[in-house]
Design a protein around this nucleic acid. Structure first.
Lengths: 196, 196
DNA sequence: ATACAAAACTAATAAGTGTTAGTTTTGTAT
DNA sequence: ATACAAAACTAACACTTATTAGTTTTGTAT
């Protein structure tokens, strides 16, 4: 076993993080034990520490991975030469697709970030505040161009982000409603509520 | 001390539940210990058990109290002879006022209900499902009367309830925005997104 | 003042926590 | 086959958890 920190090695770490995300989502970070996680990985609890440094590190990896993906997409969108409504719609659609394709991780980042240690916690909250501010700027621009209603930008951001976060809920009862209908109807509700 | 289970007695239990709600909100149910709670109440941990049966009982009382208040208000609203938009607006305004006036308890009911033991957990989830169904019925009626857009009722309920839940967030950064602006702008966004 | 129960206390229990130490197994490069 | 490190294992630690038992204090009705 000469490989130092690649292929097989990192894939086992990835497995731990993936199973960790699933476990943290269902039980919550605090209620999930390292023994629970070890069971899912198929190993004894102390063996996990050959791959990760601590329970908290798993949470950090999850939260920062999610934050980075959202930030990257926002920066892409900012660059586009679209009107405000198109930008907001693109962002909301991205949030919905993240909820669909990275459910466990997004859920954990949304619900368990507060259990991160410093300085990670502060860093994470700064990233989120920055994200909100950039979204507010898009909305402010839309208001100035009479594209949007005269609404408080922070209230609009809060409404939009909270609404998509609500998909945490839907995931469980996803019978009968197709993902497409859900996405389009939610967009319709949120965007037409915003535009003049 | 002849009083059996009234006045002073129940007010101490109420204090424990009130402090518990505050503690569970900030730390989360699982991360909050009975020793933490005892500190806040100003007593040693075992003394709490003269007033409550278990840690879980505190959570149950909080969750069911919140559920009962929402259910009562919904039933009141159903009886009114209003059009659908007015009913939905009244409900949303009630949610916002609950977030403002019973923040800790609503927060805990929203975030920590999953830690309730059976059969309370199932009972609680049934109450919530019933609440959603009744809200869906109001929206369906609004669609039939061409009052609302042709939107999937469950998606609309999810969007509305999730958006108001997002006020959990705002509470911390309540600077600069007055409660009235917040409430009115959120209503504007959500209701005009719904009506035709 | 006496009686009595509510409610505080101290001490302890059994179970579970994340994690470390030390050892053995496993798998690959030579 | 041998060497060696990655990664598994067992055993244990130090600590925290909710809760119970047993005892003492407190406060009020008589």
């Amino acid at each position: 076993m000469t490989k130092i920190k690649t292929a097989k090695n990192s894939s086992k770490k990835d497995l731990i993080i993936q199973k960790g995300a699933g476990l943290f989502r269902t039980k919550g970070f605090m209620a999930a034990s390292m023994r629970d996680l070890a069971d899912e990985v198929g190993v004894e609890a102390p063996s996990l520490y050959n791959h990760i440094g601590s329970k908290g590190e798993i949470l950090q990896v999850i939260c920062f991975k999610v934050a980075a993906e959202f930030t990257a997409q926002l920066e892409e969108t900012e660059k586009e030469n679209w009107n405000a409504a198109t930008k907001i719609e693109a962002l909301i659609r991205f949030h919905i697709s993240m909820m669909a394709n990275n459910f466990d991780e997004v859920f954990v980042a949304n619900n368990d970030w507060k259990y991160m240690d410093e300085p990670f916690l502060t860093n994470f909250l700064n990233q989120r505040r920055s994200y909100e501010k950039k979204m507010m700027a898009i909305i402010e621009a839309g208001i100035k161009k009479k594209e949007f209603k005269n609404i408080h930008p922070y209230v609009a951001v809060l409404t939009l982000l909270s609404a998509v976060r609500g998909l945490e809920y839907w995931h469980k009862s996803k019978k009968s409603i197709s993902a497409k209908v859900l996405e389009d109807d939610m967009i319709k509700h949120l965007i037409t509520g915003l535009i003049k």
